[in-house]
């Protein structure tokens, strides 16, 4: 297997990328634990402390870590129905994010949004549960940044299935036409729920579609965090310097089901999926190269568990939204209809 590492990075950057990936995985494992905790023995999607659909991002950490390493809190990012990894990598605070996932008053949306609708204005982070529809608002954020004359950028993350949606193509064209500072990141995890990309997509790489809109397109293979980091750095620099948008597709991995409760009977390679887990692979590469010690890795894990469990406890301690306030927030002035 090809190494995930590239020669240019400092040890510190490499450990930082791994650290982000470890934090994300720790978070997703904890959410998964809490999600199932009170749904046993019979799975009831609406039951428990964390109800509803739950799309976890395990396996896709390299995308989040590699791209967001180039962003600041002032840059914008729009994510998908599977948003936790990019939220965490973008720097979104775990406490209000987790409280929102638990549907509590201290969540970002005071329990109105849920895990597919996380809005952190201080990080210019948002997500949408509708495939490809997070792209157009990212264009508007980039438009505002360009108009404001600063060098902030907007990143629109989406899946490979979204590349067959009209919103995707409209957004690529308009962003290239107006040279907006946008980076489109397509997470190709091979599956649109149960449909393999070979049955949904006419091209083997969505990166080639960039050429149709006059923008650079690059495909990163092998779920390599360092290759994502390199591609992301180039694209972000291009956007910041007025060079317009870039399309990056990353061949990543959906380690778990489309959503929790998905038995994945449609997935022939199911048993071998864990063998492709990007985190142990990258950890081992760094360990073998001497860029990481086992003590450093242990410290990363300990710190991640501490942060994540703190957020879970915060969410559990937060009150439920007051049912008498169910009409709030439809409009800013409080008038509903």
């Amino acid at each position: 297997m090809t190494l995930s590492t590239t020669p240019e990075l400092t040890e510190e950057t490499r450990r930082s990328l791994l650290n982000t990936m470890v934090l994300i995985r720790t978070y997703e494992e904890a959410i998964r634990r809490e999600y199932y905790a009170d749904k046993m023995p019979a799975f009831d999607i609406g039951a428990g402390l964390v109800p509803g659909e739950m799309h976890l991002s395990a396996g896709q950490e390299p995308v989040a870590a590699g791209i967001c390493a180039h962003l600041t809190a002032d840059d914008a990012l729009t994510a998908t129905h599977r948003p936790h990894h990019v939220a965490i990598a973008k720097g979104v605070a775990l406490r209000p994010m987790t409280a929102e996932i638990f549907g509590r008053e201290d969540g970002f949306g005071h329990g109105r949004g849920g895990h597919m609708h996380l809005f952190d204005p201080s990080n210019h982070f948002s997500c949408s549960g509708i495939i490809a529809e997070g792209l157009p608002p990212a264009l508007g954020q980039a438009f505002a940044f360009k108009r404001q004359g600063n060098n902030r950028v907007a990143v629109a993350v989406t899946g490979e299935g979204a590349a067959n949606q009209g919103a995707f193509h409209e957004s690529l064209n308009l962003s290239a036409l107006w040279k907006l500072p946008v980076i489109f990141v397509v997470e190709d995890n091979d599956w649109g729920i149960s449909v393999p990309r070979s049955e949904s997509t006419s091209v083997t790489s969505n990166a080639v579609r960039a050429a149709a809109y006059g923008m650079p397109g690059v495909r990163v293979e092998n779920n390599s965090v360092e290759a994502v980091y390199a591609a992301g750095g180039e694209a972000v620099a291009r956007a910041r310097s007025g060079g317009g948008p870039t399309l990056i597709e990353v061949h990543t991995l959906r380690l778990w089901g489309h959503f929790e409760g998905d038995a994945e009977g449609y997935r022939p390679e199911l048993k071998s999926v864990p063998d492709h887990d990007p985190i142990p692979r990258y950890r081992d590469e760094l360990l073998q190269a001497g860029w990481l010690s086992t003590e450093q890795f242990q410290a990363m894990q300990d710190r991640a568990v501490e942060q994540v469990e703190d957020a879970i406890q915060f969410a559990k301690a937060s009150p439920a939204p007051n049912p008498s306030e169910h009409l709030n927030y439809v409009f800013s002035e409080g008038v509903n209809s």
Binding site: P136, G140, F143, A144, A154, L174
Partner: peptide
């Protein structure tokens, strides 16, 4: 704009958000 109502209405939303 191009005849891309999804893109330019969404662009308006993102600009308004900012």
């Amino acid at each position: 704009t191009p005849i891309s109502e999804t893109a330019f209405i969404g662009l308006g939303i993102g600009a308004a958000v900012e």
